[in-house]
Design a protein around this nucleic acid. Structure first.
Lengths: 217, 217
DNA sequence: ATATACAATGGGGGTTTCCCTACTTCGCAA
DNA sequence: TTGCGAAGTAGGGAAACCCCCATTGTATAT
């Protein structure tokens, strides 16, 4: 059986050495290359066909986020597992959006790495428990923020209807035609919306609606 | 040591019976009540002080999503672990946004339930691996969608500047003042933006910008 | 039963803002 | 040097916005 080919990207040689040893204690993996920053890595992947990349996030020159983005743009099938020393949640979202297949703490147990490699190699994902907790905390934060902002004014049915059409890009005339009402009435509903939302023109109203998630994209 | 008090909410009596047996094989937990749908549950929590709720999602009358939302509105400190038979991703987001502390498959291993109870009781979160994978897949979907839409037109510096101000809710006059240009010039840049984005007025342009994520909220 | 309140509808008339067409200038590249 | 695109300007018509007003229906309070 072919070994799983792995590339390590981390700016600390000592870590790479230690991690390589650890990985090679697994009979089924082979570290085929190493890079000490994002640029080096981008050069590397031109010549090396890897199955999995272990990618540090904090690196000089080109960090893990950008390196991953660029690499995945060129080779969308690359499987990247992000590595981080501590729970730096600033990068978490960015890395996830870049499209990494895994996210782990460097301090993870040996068994965790084994599990992660197998899972990702088979097309799955792997995230450390700590990462999952962090993500869920973020979701909770979002939820609470939204709750707070939920001091939204109450709209009448007509107002909601008009607001929706506004957010579809309709002008007063078109809204009037769509609702079989007169332009004047539409104007009235709009100015009620302005008052309730403390906005003063259509553009601001639309921005308000998007920010408060009244409208779904 | 006090036992961890648990409430089960599921519309299948057989499942509740089985699950209660399973849970009570852990010496540190106690099932203090059961409900067969969301409404029953909402009545229950008025009289019972529970540490953790195991909440089924698909239920008659009032489903797990709404029940959780309502319960958490009244008692924000409730800890809810969502249970699902299969990977019905339609509800995943809703449940997470409702603010559950955990999300598991009913088919999980006994050890998983033990781990989940302890973690959640201690203020953490627990998500089955399958759930985490699903979430990550969703993120990847999002990413890919965004990539596709990236056939964005190119804007000149001025246009970008103007667009940003527009999306802050500035009118032509205010943009002119902010950029030290004449209103007429701003109008010109705007009409260029209209052409490039195939929109025909400011409102549509703003909608375009938000949809294509040119602007960050 | 009679106010009071407000959602919903619509009109007159006015000011402001938006947006299109047409024209000029400037810089840069073929 | 000529052509092209970015940047800037002008005038005029269309749309948006505002204030005042009036009518109808449906609640809720007195």
């Amino acid at each position: 059986m072919d070994k799983i080919r792995i590339i390590l990207v981390d700016d600390h040689k000592i870590f790479r050495d230690g991690f390589r040893m650890l990985l090679q204690s697994f009979s089924f993996v082979e570290v085929i290359a190493e890079a000490s920053n994002g640029n080096e890595f981008l050069d590397l992947i031109e010549d090396h066909q890897a199955d999995i990349i272990f990618m540090d996030i904090n690196m000089p020159q080109l960090d893990g986020v950008e390196a991953s983005q660029k690499a995945l743009e060129k080779y969308p099938d690359l499987k990247i597992i992000a590595l981080t020393t501590f729970l730096d949640d600033d990068y978490l979202e960015q890395m996830l959006m870049a499209g990494v297949e895994g996210y782990m703490l460097k301090s993870a147990e040996i068994e965790e790495f084994e599990k992660a490699i197998v899972k990702v190699y088979e097309g799955g994902n792997y995230f450390s428990d700590e990462i999952v907790s962090l993500l869920s905390d973020k979701l909770n934060m979002l939820r609470k923020k939204r709750k707070k902002k939920d001091d939204l004014p109450e709209f009448t049915d007509r107002e909601k209807e008009v607001l929706e059409l506004i957010c579809k890009g309709y002008g007063n005339k078109q809204i009037a035609e769509a609702t079989f009402l007169s332009i004047k009435t539409i104007e009235k509903h709009k100015s009620s919306l302005f008052q309730k939302t403390e906005t003063y023109n259509t553009v601001n109203l639309v921005i308000y609606a998007f920010k408060h998630q009244i409208i779904k994209f």
